[in-house]
């Protein structure tokens, strides 16, 4: 079976459109990667040319195909210490700014959403315990939420595959995990007991109304899967849930500046994050 061809101008046209919609920019060197996935989606949707596929992508009222293509173009898996430069930024810069303006006895609040099977919030706990010297002076509350109750159950259980923990230094693996007979790793209960896991649909105000005065939000690789309106609604909900001066960390291919004007960009040594103005 012959594949529909994608010309150089088609690639450029698609690249500009996809960048505008998602913030993801493909260099020329990614041409093979992009073409392969475009052709897969064209075949899956029965499109006989790039043009007909692009028209559907551009004008389909439901945006379903843009969603499917975005899924194909982004490969996400969760594991401990993923994109750890943001955790470095948390303990080296963000928390110090947060506590500098925090009223006495007010807890520091961190919200991980979507938390999936727990690797992200547990990574945050380990980072705090290992790298934030002021931890013994402040109460820290960590909330972890997801819309999927199955992943929440798995997160609360705290058992992880060797692949999931492969980026953890051996010393931390020994310190915070117990190796099980089947080769998996169970996280220390002191760590798992420090996190509140809850089911949350980010776009449902009834689900999010409890979240107040959040100082740091980790929302990585979620907004990229939302349509424009939902993305903007999510930004507005985070703004409402956060403390003035609070920070939000997005995935490496996501940009709040492309979603909403409510936050300002902050460049730190370890990472670029977004801040609710004080």
């Amino acid at each position: 079976m012959s594949h529909p061809a994608i010309g150089q101008e088609d690639f450029h046209k698609f690249r500009e459109f996809f960048y505008r919609k998602t913030g993801i920019l493909f260099e020329d060197s990614k041409r093979y990667f992009v073409d392969k996935r475009l052709i897969e989606r064209m075949e899956a949707t029965g499109s006989d040319s790039f043009r007909s596929y692009f028209t559907m992508l551009r004008f389909q009222a439901s945006s379903e195909e843009l969603q499917a293509l975005t899924n194909a173009m982004t490969v996400n898996e969760t594991y401990f210490f993923r994109e750890s430069y943001q955790f470095d930024c948390l303990v080296n810069s963000l928390l110090d700014e947060v506590v500098a303006t925090k009223p006495p006895k007010k807890p520091v609040r961190i919200w991980s959403l979507p938390c999936s099977t727990g690797e992200e919030p547990y990574s945050i706990v380990i980072y705090l315990l290992e790298h934030w010297a002021k931890l013994d002076r402040f109460d820290v509350e960590i909330f972890a939420s997801d819309i999927d109750t199955q992943v929440l159950q798995a997160a609360a259980k705290g058992v992880f595959s060797p692949r999931s923990v492969q980026h953890l230094p051996a010393a931390l693996l020994r310190k915070y995990f117990t190796r099980l007979a089947n080769g998996n790793y169970k996280i220390d209960e002191q760590v798992s007991d420090s996190i509140d896991f809850s089911r949350v649909n980010l776009l449902d105000p009834l689900d999010t109304r409890h979240f107040r005065d959040i100082d740091v939000v980790f929302c990585r690789n979620l907004l990229i899967y939302f349509d424009d309106t939902s993305r903007r609604a999510a930004a507005e909900i985070f703004y409402n849930a956060m403390s003035p001066g609070g920070f939000i960390c997005l995935g490496h291919s996501e940009s709040m500046s492309r979603i909403s004007d409510l936050f300002r960009v902050r460049k730190f040594k370890d990472a670029i994050v977004y801040q609710k103005p004080l």
Binding site: P107, L129, L135, D139, E141, S145, Q190, S194, R209, H210
Partner: peptide, 20 residues
């Protein structure tokens, strides 16, 4: 450990956040 587990649903809500 100063990590304090608090249930999100137990956080005090501002008056304007109650179900309207």
């Amino acid at each position: 450990m100063p990590l304090r587990k608090t249930r999100a649903e137990d956080l005090p809500q501002a008056g304007s956040q109650a179900a309207l």
